[in-house]
């Protein structure tokens, strides 16, 4: 078993929480893990990514080779496209559709979505909207995790345990909201696998 995952977004959007939960679930499932993060200057509103590698064999490189990623999970649509060189030929592309606009030359969103929709294996999900509808604005990243859970080959229960582990300190309400958000993302992905 091997899953190489690129997590993408803009500094501050919460991709490291997604990584922490998948990581927890993978390790609890007896798998090896390497997870490279970006710290420092880019965290100030720049593009950030995390290379998350899970395998039942030894993992050498901390970076995923180009053309080797089984999944791209992005909390922002343009950032998802930035990592296209990493996506393997049969890989899945899972992105939030809500743009994060903090640059003057952000592309036209319709053209951007055309580009996303041209990718054969993709799930495009308005995770911000789904989180908002549930009254859990800050759980957008958990909706994305839910959408990705369908492709992870990790028991869903372990991901739930991961949410409890990562958010436990913040209280039951936060855990509950995040579990609900993840479920909503999962349901969407199951219905909308393109």
């Amino acid at each position: 078993m091997k899953k190489d995952i690129i997590l993408a977004g803009v500094g501050g959007q919460g991709i490291l929480s997604i990584a922490a939960i998948i990581g927890y679930a993978a390790v609890e499932n007896g798998l090896n893990l390497k997870q490279a993060e970006v710290h420092g200057m880019s965290q100030r509103g720049g593009d950030v990514q995390s290379h998350l590698r899970i395998s039942d064999r030894e993992i050498y490189s901390d970076l995923i080779p180009q053309g080797g990623a089984d999944l791209i999970i992005s909390v922002e649509p343009m950032e998802a496209l930035r990592y296209m060189p990493y996506l393997s030929q049969n890989g899945w592309f899972i992105t939030n559709t809500t743009p994060f606009v903090n640059i003057p030359n952000y592309p036209d969103t319709e053209k951007l979505m055309n580009e996303v929709n041209s990718i054969p294996n993709h799930v495009a999900i308005n995770a911000d909207q789904i989180a908002k509808d549930m009254g859990a604005n800050r759980s957008m990243n958990m909706v994305m995790l839910g959408a990705a859970s369908v492709f992870l080959d990790i028991p869903y229960k372990k991901l739930e345990d991961g949410i409890k582990f990562v958010f436990g300190r913040k209280g039951d309400e936060v855990v509950k909201a995040n579990l609900k958000a993840m479920k909503a993302g999962k349901d969407f992905a199951e219905e909308n696998k393109a």
Binding site: G45, M78, L81, I103
Partner: peptide
């Protein structure tokens, strides 16, 4: 390749 539509997003 990275699609042409992708713009740079430097830190700010």
């Amino acid at each position: 390749a990275i699609p042409d539509i992708v713009a740079g997003r430097p830190p700010a």
